[in-house]
Every structure is written in structure tokens, then in C-alpha cells.
Amino acid sequence: MKALRISKLEKTYANGLHALKGINLEVAQGDFFALLGPNGAGKSTTIGIITTLVKKTGGKVFVYDYDLDKDVVEAKSMIGIVPQEINFSQFETCMEIVLNQAGYYGIRRRKAYERAEKYLTQLGLWKKRNDTSRTLSGGLKRRLMIARALIHEPRLLILDEPTAGVDVELRRSMWQFLREINRQGTTILLTTHYLEEAECLCRNIAIIDHGQIIEHSSMKSLLGKLHIERFVLDLDSPLKTLPVIDGFNLYKVEEDDAIIEVEISRGQNLNDLFSMLSDRGINVISMRNKSNRLEELFVRLLDKDTREKV
């Protein structure tokens, strides 16, 4: 059984914008799945349709085999959503917000209190439970949206850029939390602009662009498609001229003579490069990827000229 099955999904908005052009997508049960794409690619429209906030023009959506058109109550009961924008009442307390959400899913007050305590505690909001939501910081508001989405213990959790605008420390703690609930069996569908986040958390990935899925595979096999990676090498002393080394393309960094960049193709050995540099009296003291691997791929996939070469 798939947690989510989307077939030939179409959306044309009233202004004529053809946002989704018959996309197909499958998310396995228990998966941590990334849906990536540039702004305006169709990610939020897809999520909007799954959560029924956007009306589709065509196609089908199944959540744990429940047809979103026919078994809407069952399908919606399976989904928890953390939207991109803050969308709770600014005048209600954290406790009221999660209790009300529990009520909308048919959870009675006593049980709702127990769950509210559990999730508000896990997300570090218990001490703030009686504070009105408008008094929370941006990061705490994001956490409150996660607590709200989990209160009915959904089997499919959809996170639409959950860590946007969140500081690094908080982002890492949210990753930890999301990994844990995924480990406990909740399927997670994540959209994010932080590609490092997707690479770090997700096992499978789809990339959407101009309303079409241009890539749908496992993270491992996608990253395996990256033929060329660019590394930054920090040297122990500045270079006057860039050495020529057979089989490797080296580049100077204008701002600093003690840094060079090198493109490594799949199959090339970094040890060969280091020994050749060493023969020329050039010592590398540290090395790092110029960009995140997924970011590199993402940019190449979105660029039609380089897509074929990936």
C-alpha cells in the first residue's frame, strides 16, 4: 500500500495558469520523501490539492488507498499538514490551538489534553501552552504548527517548508524530531528550499518544474547521477600561477591565492590529484564540496542545457 498515490494530476487556475500538467507521484508507506522544485513549480499546488485547499482540475489522489474524491473523510483523517505560512489564530493560546485541531478530527477533550501535553512537551512548548500564539517567536510558531499537525497522529505528515526562517540550531532539533516520528512509522512528505535538509532527511525524492515531475527516484540513485563535483582546496601557501595537472581542471579563486577549485569527474581518484599537487610542492590542508551535492544536481536538472548531461 502506498501512503500517497497521485495520478495524472492537473490544475489550471482561474487566471489560466496551468500549474500542474498531469503529474504522477507515489510515496511509499513509512518513507521520508522530498518534493523539490523552484518557486512556482507546482509544489504548493500539489500539497494544496492533497489537503483539499486547492481544487484539482483533473486526475486522482489516493491517501493510503482512500480516494480523495470518494472517501474524503477517511483520506483527510490520514493527513497532517504543516503549511508554509503561519495559519493559526493569533488570539488563541497554544493549548487552545491544538485542542481545537484535535476536536476537528473527532478527538475528545480528555484524550486531546493527553496528546497536547505529549506533543507540546516534545516540541518544547509546554511552558508556553497558555501564551497566546502571537507572542511566540517565529521558530516557536513553526513548532506549534508541527504540534498541531500531529495532534490527531496522522499517518502521512506533509511539511511545506517547515524550517523556513528558522535558525540553524532549531532547524537541527526539528530534523531530529522529524526523523524520530518517521522512525515511529509516520510517512513524511517534505518540501523545502534547503537542499541540505532534503539530502540529510529524505530517502526518496521528486523534482517538479513547470508543473511536471522531471525526476522521481531514490536520493541515493539521484545523487549517483552526479557526474562532476567541484571541490574547494585550501592550500598551505599562496600560488603565483595555477599548475597544469593532466586529467584535472583546476581553477583559481580571485579573492584568495591560497585557495583553488577542482572539478572531479566520476572515476577520477582524488589521491592522484593530491600526489601530483604534492610533487609540485603544493600542500592541501583542507578540502570541501563547493556546493551541496543535491544543490548541484538540482541546479543542473532545472537547467535544460545541462539536464541531459546529469
Partner: peptide, 18 residues
């Protein structure tokens, strides 16, 4: 209208409430 304006009407719309 307040719920629409602040978008928390979505809390109800995504839930399985007819």
C-alpha cells in the same frame, strides 16, 4: 471573515469535517 483573513479557516478545511 477573521478566520479567512488569518487563514486559520484552513484548520477546519483540511480536517475531515463536512
Amino acid at each position: 471573515f477573521g478566520a479567512k483573513f488569518q487563514k486559520h479557516i484552513e484548520e477546519m478545511l483540511v480536517a475531515p469535517i463536512p
